[in-house]
């Protein structure tokens, strides 16, 4: 359960909507099931009835600001990790800051429905969070299953990078703190594999890709006017899974596309219907960049230059990669 209540968020939304300070609220609404929470735009106090806040509000709302700020002044609820995406989008001039009223919501970690399913089984009909427990009712059992919330957190919440909002107009709670996470541990595991093992790992993961484009569509760094994969003259169009090489190319092109801009928000992996750990590709690039150019967190501040778009005399020589020099040195 989130310590911050739905009522607190609603109160803020009602207040700003009715005062006319904003004309729309970006939040989450319930889908068919409790866990089926989707981003939503609420343009009236009445509409707020559908507003939800809870363990399944993982969706990062930043990207929707591009579209909505063109029509409205928008109240957006942002969890700490979401604020990095907003900053990164502002760095890239994707919308006007004045069009946004950002309300920082504290976050106690969001639940991963896939992990929950694995523990509670299929046929979930209702999910109820109480404290650190999640009560799950399924079609196939009379008794609700009780699950420890901490065991079903999203990977990105287990490795939470910060409880501190990188940007906000107001906070609904006290400022949080940076968390120390071991988010590069999984990357290190991949690095310790032999090239053949690693190739097999990714071959196996990426072979499941159905090119639904969910990772691209949800990614707050993927905001091109025309995506190269949709542009007939780009040469990269239709990099569909015609063969095993091309299905990898889609993800590799995408990883390089967001390199230096990816805030590691983890939305790509969260939405992937095939459960491909796509965040690991981006995280590997972040880890390498940190080793080469010093620690850089995209979106930590508006206007910061990514090391890939910046040059300093002390930059590592590109040959270092080929020298096989120790990246962490």
């Amino acid at each position: 359960m989130q310590k911050m209540t739905r009522e607190a968020l609603l109160e803020k939304a009602r207040e700003l909507l009715s005062s006319g300070k904003v004309s729309a609220v970006l939040g989450w609404k319930k889908g068919e099931f409790d866990y089926d929470v989707t981003p939503a735009v609420f343009d009236s106090v009445d509409a707020l009835e559908d507003f939800v806040w809870g363990d399944f509000c993982g969706a990062n709302l930043s990207k929707y600001l591009i579209k909505e700020t063109k029509k409205h002044r928008v109240l957006v609820f942002l969890k700490p990790c979401d604020t990095y995406s907003m900053n990164q989008l502002l760095t890239e001039h994707r919308f006007e800051r004045e069009q946004v009223h950002a309300v920082g919501v504290p976050c106690d970690g969001m639940a991963d429905i896939n992990l929950l399913r694995r523990k509670a089984g299929e046929g979930i009909v209702s999910v109820d969070s109480i404290g650190e427990e999640i009560k799950v009712e399924t079609l196939y059992s009379d008794e609700p299953v009780i699950i420890d919330r901490r065991e079903v957190l999203l990977e990105r919440c287990v490795n939470c990078k910060s409880k501190k909002h990188a940007a906000f107009d107001e906070l609904l709670s006290d400022a949080g703190e940076d968390s120390s996470s071991d988010r590069f541990q999984d990357v290190e595991k991949l690095e310790s594999m032999t090239p053949d093992e690693r190739f097999e790992f990714w071959q196996n993961e990426l072979s499941r890709c159905i090119r639904c484009n969910a990772c691209r569509d949800v990614c707050p760094a993927c905001t091109c006017e025309t995506c190269v994969f949709n542009n007939p003259s780009s040469g990269a169009e239709n990099k569909a899974p015609v063969n095993s090489f091309e299905e990898q190319m889609f993800h590799i092109i995408r990883a390089f596309h967001v390199a230096g801009r990816c805030t590691d928000c983890g939305e790509c992996a969260r939405v992937c219907p095939e459960h491909i750990p796509l965040h690991l590709i981006n995280r590997k690039i972040i880890k390498d960049m940190n080793a080469f150019y010093g620690v850089f967190q995209a979106g930590a501040e508006v206007g910061a230059k990514s090391p890939l778009l910046d040059y300093t005399v002390s930059d590592i020589e590109p040959g270092a990669v080929f020298d096989g020099r120790d990246h962490d040195a």
Partner: peptide, 13 residues
């Protein structure tokens, strides 16, 4: 310009 999203990356480099 039709493809440009205005991110300023080019201006930076």
């Amino acid at each position: 310009a039709l493809l440009c999203s205005g991110c300023s990356a080019c201006q930076n480099v």
